[in-house]
């Protein structure tokens, strides 16, 4: 009954490549933090974190080899997080009496 074609076994090489990429990105993000980019530091740091997270999700968590449903579920989590963060920040950035908001 076991249908082995469905159980995708990822080659070792892929795991080690992804791991190396994660380590390199970790040191890049620490390095970039030491450089003053003004307001762009946070964007760079978050972009790197997102790349790292995507690598883990796709390869370590096997989403790349999973059904479409799994991909949709995983994506839904992040979309709803954007709902929560995006709309709330809309309130705070438009409160004229709060420092850091757009006047």
């Amino acid at each position: 009954m076991s249908d082995h074609s469905e159980h995708h076994i990822v080659p070792l090489k892929v795991y080690f490549l992804v791991f190396s990429a994660l380590m390199i990105l970790l040191f890049v993000t620490v390095g970039v933090a030491m450089v003053n980019l003004g307001p762009f530091n946070i964007y760079v740091a978050m972009s790197i974190a997102i790349i790292k997270a995507v690598l883990v999700v796709l390869y370590f968590m096997h989403v790349r080899y999973s059904t479409r449903l799994t991909m949709v579920v995983a994506a839904a989590g992040f979309i709803w997080l954007v709902f929560l963060l995006g709309i709330t920040i809309l309130d705070y950035t438009s409160r004229s009496w709060i420092p850091g908001s757009y006047q």
């Binding site: 709309i87 809309l90 438009s94």
Partner: peptide, 18 residues
């Protein structure tokens, strides 16, 4: 339904744009 929650907060000091 996930995008409407702030209508409970019209008078709680939320920004009027929100």
């Amino acid at each position: 339904g996930f995008l409407v929650w702030g209508h409970h907060m019209f008078v709680s000091g939320q920004s009027s744009y929100a």
